[in-house]
Amino acid sequence: MADGLELTGVSVAYAGRRVVDDVSLQVRPGTIVGLVGESGSGKTTLARAVVGTVGLAGGTVHLDGTPLARRRSRTERRAVQLVQQDPYASLNPLLTVGRVLDELLRVHRLAERRIASDTAGAPDAGAWRRARCAELMGLVGLEADTLGRYPRQLSGGQRQRVAIARALAVEPRILVADEPTSALDVTVQRTVLDVLVGLSARVGLGVLLISHDLSVIHAACDDVAVLREGRIVEHAPAARFFTHPSDPYSRRLLQAVPRLPERAP
């Protein structure tokens, strides 16, 4: 099996009903796969299945060729991270951004691991963590002084980038982003998408980008999968999907998107 995330025949059932039904999907390192679906399609449940917070009724999830167990180890949990829609709800209001990140690095003993494996590195874990926090801010396009701020002092877009930085702190292989731009103003959406695109290219992160918004998927993704009532009805390279969808439902979705009239060049 290849590198990255691989779902094979994944099903999730609630009360006997299959809300995710026989889904197969691959996310390679350095690529962004878009998962599009309307409400009730099972997108969020699928996200939970990928990060391991719901059990599977069938199928397997592999990471870099290794099957992930029902109860994931701490290392396995670190490897697949989730970013959710609402950055307001997911950040502790009482901690500064720097404190949140530092805490994570400390809990996972990331400095110690890194220093142990890096012969040239300084032995000071605190200094390593400070440098890493600044680096994380850089990766999501935020100034280093953001580390001293509290969540309420940040805009929605900044908060979402902090949430991404927090997910990145534990050095995941795969990032699952569930509607990461839906709560943001339109002018900020693009910044967050650019961050995801940059990360997949620069650090080889595999991203599963879940959205109801086809333009968001188009702006960021290499491949597109369409989920309807728990099943994948189409899975195609983005370049083909947006002009030549093969499934009638995909086509209906694309036709429904409001588009601007022609703009002057």
Binding site: V186, Q189, S215, V216, P245, L260
Partner: peptide
């Protein structure tokens, strides 16, 4: 207007 993410024609 620039923030409206474009989609290619179907």
């Amino acid at each position: 207007l620039d923030a409206v993410l474009p989609l290619p024609a179907l």
